[in-house]
Design a protein around this nucleic acid. Structure first.
Length: 273
DNA sequence: AGTGGCTCCTGAGCGC
DNA sequence: TGCGCTCAGGAGCCAC
């Protein structure tokens, strides 16, 4: 499931292949996946435009096209965007194909939760879902006291707070659990009970786990692939996610699995206080 | 403001 | 082999 490191990896791999290519035509095979500007036809608006740049905000990928249009992609659970240098037959769950002057870009999504939304570039950041996002955790301007101030407003568990994209952008279930483990904090703790020293630990753990995730080109627990169709390798570095009932790699205690904030959450009852 | 529940959706895994 | 069930979950929405 693409979280910040996965979207960043897709962005980087896509930039190497699709930058500067022109979109000759678009095939839409499941219309809800391609959301157009109200009153405008998606294909007609995108046709003929050049892919000028890529950006990322939280878990959103932004594809900036020439003449002021942007496609905002949210992959949700199982979305994929893969570049092929040659003609490629459509797979079962391929919903949108961009036919480029060189190669093809295929958007596929097994569970159909993801969307490609077309907006004007000038309004992209004002789109409701993006406007509400909290700070970028890897931005050098993002300081620990900023995290502390945002957490101070929350009255919920720390796990729920980290998943709240308004608090901090880009964390999902995997990296939230991994960050909490590395910070030694139980995910069920009330946010307001965290001491400053714990928020500093959490801040550092978030930065470390996201940077490590990007370095490993993401976590391919099941469905995730980058724009070249390759898997990431961070699944081999996961300490808690997907390891409920197994031994803690630090202390050997059995890892606990609980529903917190409606999400399956795994933690070490011994290492995390 | 919070939480829980529901919705979207398909496939994997499991018991029988 | 296959049926029916549960689970996986990001985010928006609703009721409370």
């Amino acid at each position: 499931m693409p979280e910040l490191p996965e979207v960043e990896t897709i962005k980087r791999s896509l930039a190497k292949k699709a930058l500067g290519k022109r979109i000759l035509d678009v095939g839409i095979f499941w219309p809800p996946a391609a959301v157009s500007i109200p009153g405008g036809d998606f294909t007609e608006l995108v046709k003929g435009r050049e892919i000028e740049s890529f950006a990322r905000r939280g878990k959103y990928l932004l594809i900036n096209l020439s003449r002021g249009l942007t496609m905002i992609v949210h992959f949700r659970m199982t979305g994929r965007l893969i570049y092929y240098a040659d003609q490629q037959p459509r797979e079962k769950h391929t919903h949108v194909v961009f036919y480029l002057d060189q190669g093809e870009l295929h958007y596929s999504d097994i569970r159909k939760f993801g969307r490609i939304q077309l907006v004007s570039t000038s309004e992209a950041m004002q789109v409701a879902s993006l406007a509400k996002l909290g700070p970028e955790p890897l931005d050098e301007l993002f300081a620990f006291d900023q995290l502390g101030q945002r957490l101070a407003k929350k009255k919920s568990t720390i796990k729920a707070s980290l998943l709240d994209q308004k608090v901090i952008a880009g964390l999902g279930n995997i990296y939230a659990d991994e960050a909490l483990f590395r910070a030694g904090i139980q995910p069920g703790r009330r946010t307001e009970s965290l001491k400053v020293s714990e928020i500093i630990k959490l801040y550092n753990a978030i930065g470390e786990v996201l940077a490590a995730g990007i370095k490993a080109k993401g976590t391919s627990f099941r469905d995730y692939r980058d724009a070249d169709g390759n898997k990431g390798s961070f699944q081999y570095n996961l300490m808690v996610y997907g390891r409920g009932g197994l031994e803690c790699i630090v202390c050997g205690q059995k890892l606990e699995r609980q529903k917190i904030a409606g999400r399956t959450t795994v933690f070490c009852p011994d290492c995390q206080k």
